[in-house]
Computed example of a mutant assay.
Amino acid sequence: MTRRPADGDHAVVLAVDDGRLDFADSPSVRQTPASVRAGWRWFEVDLRERRLSGLGFPGARCRGRWRTRSRPPGTPSWTCRLVEDVLATAARDEDGLGAALARSHVPGYALRWSLPRAPRSPAGIRSGTVRRTPRELVRHACAVLLGFDEVLARLYPADEEREVLRDVAGMLVRERDPAEALAGQPLPSSGPGDGADTLSLLRTFAGHEMAHAVREAVDLHDMRAAQRARPAPHSRELLRELAARRTPPTVVTDRSGGAVDLFLRHNGLIDHVREPVYGRSADLARMMPRPHVLLKALGDMGAPASECVLIASTTAEQAAAQAIGLPFIGYAPTDTTRRHLRAADGDVRLVSSLASLVEAVRSR
């Protein structure tokens, strides 16, 4: 559990490998192997309200407090830059500065803005008071990012994924160090609450000496499965409509990038997405909920996270988007997916079908 002093003004947190601060009992920290966590540092953060001025807009001031139940975005200096970026972006919004600031947010912080008072206008604006619907997010996003699982396809049927896990387990038994096996040293294993799937397996082996062998084995299975996978309902229309409006989506995933690229080409969809596909890193510690793949895609596009949207179906993708202030739409075609996403964030925006998002794109 995270240590919190009795006065409530400070908290002790971890500085994880991508520069974020996170509570020790957060899901993303618990999913990271102990060998990786050992290299992280502890910091004490100040929870008291801070006031910022001189933000590049005459008379504008901002008060901010770190919300301890949210994942913070990074160091205080980075937070100041985020606040400045939010204000600069809002000043260009066609709906006006006040409306834009009410929609904006800096992840992990509750902000209150003070602006030069105009006749019959409020002097204070609280960020995040205007909640955009999934249709509005898609309609106004400067870039759309799509997860692969469920949104574009289901790579493995449940019974086939179990076969993959058994095959990888057999490989581990054959290729692990005999001395370690004889000494009774256990291989990494997922916790009882984790799903039995290939992505959970890969996250478990992050930082392990057999991580490369496990990744290569799963990559091979991903490539085979990609040739049989078929597009999810309405996904083809979503890709085509976005591309037709000169906003081809970017695919970001923890699956093998080569496998997803093969799926798109095999089903005639590659021309409707922005290349390349951003797949999992060779470093398994960078898989989501780490936001590495999202930051890479956004950086290559030169697009600020707050002006884009991610449509995806897993809690790992949800947490990665939240960590960098990227608006998230949860695609929940089943009750199970809906429960998982809602349990991770009670305020998550959900859609049960991509059809409504297709209609939103057509109104862009």
Rank of each mutant, 00 (worst) to 15 (best):
P27W: 04
W40G: 10
C80E: 15
V29N: 02
W78T: 02
G64N: 07
S26Y: 09
P76F: 03
W66E: 13
R30E: 03
T68K: 01
S77E: 15
G74V: 05
G74M: 03
R69P: 04
S35Q: 00
L55T: 05
R48I: 02
R63C: 14
R30C: 02
E49H: 06
G64W: 12
W78K: 07
W42T: 13
S53T: 13
T75K: 05
W42C: 00
R65L: 01
D46W: 03
S53A: 14
G64V: 14
T75Q: 09
D46N: 07
R50I: 11
R30V: 01
A24G: 10
R81W: 10
Q31E: 09
E84Q: 15
S28W: 05
T68Y: 07
V36F: 05
L47C: 13
W66H: 14
A38C: 05
G64D: 03
T79V: 15
E84W: 07
Q31L: 14
V36N: 07
T79D: 05
P33A: 08
G39C: 01
Q31Y: 04
V36Q: 05
F23A: 13
V83H: 03
P73E: 12
F43S: 13
S70I: 01
R37Q: 05
V45F: 03
L52A: 14
A34N: 03
R67W: 10
W42S: 06
L52F: 15
E49Q: 13
R71T: 03
A60N: 01
E44H: 04
L82G: 02
F23M: 08
R50N: 13
R37I: 00
R37Y: 00
W42E: 10
V29C: 04
T79I: 14
R71C: 03
R51Q: 14
W40L: 06
R48E: 10
C62P: 07
A60P: 02
Q31C: 04
G56W: 09
P58Y: 02
S77Q: 14
F23P: 06
G59M: 02
R67E: 12
G64C: 12
T79C: 01
L47K: 07
R69V: 09
R63W: 15
P76N: 10
R63L: 15
P58S: 09
A24N: 00
E44I: 08
R65S: 13
D46L: 00
R69K: 05
W66L: 15
W42D: 08
C80N: 11
W78Y: 06
